[in-house]
Design a protein around this nucleic acid. Sequence first.
DNA 1: CTGTTAGCGCATTCAC
DNA 2: GTGAATGCGCTAACAG
Lengths: 324, 324
Amino acid sequence: MANIRDVAERAGVGIGTVSRVLNNSGYVSAEARLKIEQTMAELEFTPNQMARNLGRQSNNLVAIIVPNIGHPFFGDYIKHAEMELYMRGYKTVVCDTMQRRDREQEFLDMLRRRAVDGIIMGSHALEDEEYRKTKGPIVSMEQRLGKGIPLICSDHRKGGRLAARRLAERGCRQVAQFVERGAEKPADARYLAFAEFLEEKNIKVYEISTNYNRLDFAVYLQTANKLFNEQPRIDGFFGVDLAACAVLKVAHQRGIPVPEKLKVVGYDGSMISEIGPQNITTVVQPIREIAQHSVAAVVDLIENRPRLRDETILDVYLHEGDTA
Amino acid sequence: MANIRDVAERAGVGIGTVSRVLNNSGYVSAEARLKIEQTMAELEFTPNQMARNLGRQSNNLVAIIVPNIGHPFFGDYIKHAEMELYMRGYKTVVCDTMQRRDREQEFLDMLRRRAVDGIIMGSHALEDEEYRKTKGPIVSMEQRLGKGIPLICSDHRKGGRLAARRLAERGCRQVAQFVERGAEKPADARYLAFAEFLEEKNIKVYEISTNYNRLDFAVYLQTANKLFNEQPRIDGFFGVDLAACAVLKVAHQRGIPVPEKLKVVGYDGSMISEIGPQNITTVVQPIREIAQHSVAAVVDLIENRPRLRDETILDVYLHEGDTA
DNA sequence: CTGTTAGCGCATTCAC
DNA sequence: GTGAATGCGCTAACAG
């Protein structure tokens, strides 16, 4: 592996000059540049990224930390965020905490150790103090990590209202929503707004809590079955897309026609809301914009650009589907 | 930011001793160790990862390069691979080439620059020579990158046969399969085996090619519609899960009952085969095992452990669903 | 067991 | 414009 010094010697120039053509910085005579470029080609010289990182104290890496890569929302988010980061010259490190504190802590430590330049945090298993102690570029998505850490999330309050209004308009009288237990989250506003809106109209709302520790499909299926067993007269449902899929599936198994006897509204607008035979009527979170804003925020922090807002709330809308 | 020298001075020891307790290597007296640990705590010392990387010429990063993160197969794959890598002490860099040569080249260059220790390649947009030129730990999944680069993939030949046999057993007479155009891939064996098996039994096989450049759902939907328009008498279908979803959806729209009038068999066994109202009968690729083997392979290469096989083909099986 | 030394490969002054 | 020197923070080899 040829290094920069080999190139310098072979080209008969100084090491600094080589560095300058490498980084395209400062002045280099056309002559010297040509000679150096030739030599680099001959030697198949490739700059060592680790050395560059150490020299400039930055590695152009951003970690995205999520509780579950497999969840469609996070999957879609990562796709968009990776693209945004790429366009800004950063590579993406994905970290799945699987809801485990120790993992989240370890991933968070990557920033302290400067293994990454910044972190986008979509998980929240630690005390707020931990995040604050980790000074450095952190932004959070859909998690409130404490004052001073920029938050990007969708307008859950509005989302809850949109879903509630739709179910009310469709004549539902007894609706259920899945509520995800766990640390306090921006998403909680959604549950509240949903229930408030409907209760004002004297529509009964059953809340079933799903264990946030296991947000996989099997759990949603179980919970959906439990719901129909306990509340067979339910005529409306609201939950994240994956939960809506589970409810649709169980309804299908039990011969409950949707939307005739049961209206279903999802939340997320992720890919899975469109791949089933019925399009799910769902509140669309602007996942792409969430990705854009969170990436912009963390990159601003990394590159020392001032940030004005600490909280960015993005608009949601109801996407017409076949289920409500 | 305190560094290792600050700690050494403050603790009244040498810099080497501090390094030893950091890495838990070599002998350190209990006394010194205690003193150093205290000092590290006082100073809130955190070792700088970039410096460590440069020192030991390794950064414990592995890049996973895929053509499309959004595809369920890759999403599931990344989830498992990230976990496997984590358990072995590596972090995961995800790279979405979006089918673009320049991006794949850039991601590949990360290895040459030693920005990552190794690469798992699930994309194939460059000439084989490029991969070989990039000496270093590379393994490929579901892509044949040339002799010398370990390949991990599922048994596509068997998968094609399994699907074909099922459709034949179910009495199909005219079946269609989606064939993904693009560079030659191990998956091609599946198309061949499928067609061979059925043609032997005098069952007609229509092949419709989908553009591998855009393996998203909208394209599959279009193609499915085209299929039903051109071949309205089709009674069997085979394609990746996402394509199967599209076909199921279009069939539903056109009032074609599945499995009564149309049998559908998927390929992948990804999450989406189970979240619809009907479970898709599908050939399951052992995504988790693919992840385990590919991670094991790349880590072996990184850590200079000898590899015996150059090719690992993993078994597939037919998962019973409701669509065939 | 421990302190010192010499790199790791490049970026970045700063005189010339 | 350019080369030599210094430092980034740590690892590892070595003498003690």
